[in-house]
Amino acid sequence: MGKRGGYLVTGAIGAALSAGYLALAARLPLGAMDQPGAGVFPVVVGVLVLLSSIAVLWEGWRMPAEDAVAMPAGVDAVRVLALLGLLVGYVLLLPWIGQLVGSFLFCLLVIRLLSRTPWPWIALQAAAIAVTAQLVFVRLLQVQMPRGILGF
C-alpha cells in the first residue's frame, strides 16, 4: 500500500472512531451553557477528530498515487512482527509467570531473534538482564511488579 492508501485508511479509521466516540459522548450529561456538563468537551473533541479525519481523507485523495511508505518487506517485516509478537506475549503472560521469569524468557527470545549468538551465551545474557531488572526495580526501587504463580 502506498502513502495515499495509508492516508485513506487512516482517515477512514479516524472518521469511524470519531463517530463511535461522538455517539458515546452524546450519552454524557451536556448541561447548559452556563453549567456545562461532562459531555461538552468530548463533543467538541469528537467533532475535531471527525474534521481532522476528513482532512486526512482529503489530503490522501489529492496525494499522488506514486508516493511510497518505507514499510519493511520480506524477512525484515517478519523480524518486526516477531518482535511485536514477543512483546505482546510477554505482557499477556506477565501476570501469570511474573516479572523475573517473564523478562528472562522475553530477553532470551529477543536476543535470539536479533543475533546468532549460541543459546548458552544468550541464556546467560538474558538471565543477567532479568536479574538486574529485578534487583534494581523490584527490590531497590520497590516497583510492585506481578509475581506470577511462582511467586517472583
Binding site: L94, F106, I111, L113, L114, Q125, I129, V143
Partner: peptide, 16 residues
C-alpha cells in the same frame, strides 16, 4: 541485541 531487550523490559516495568 543487548540494549534493545533492556530498553523494552524497562519500558514495561516503567509503564506498569
Amino acid at each position: 541485541h543487548i540494549f534493545l531487550p533492556i530498553i523494552l523490559v524497562i519500558a514495561v516495568i516503567g509503564s506498569y
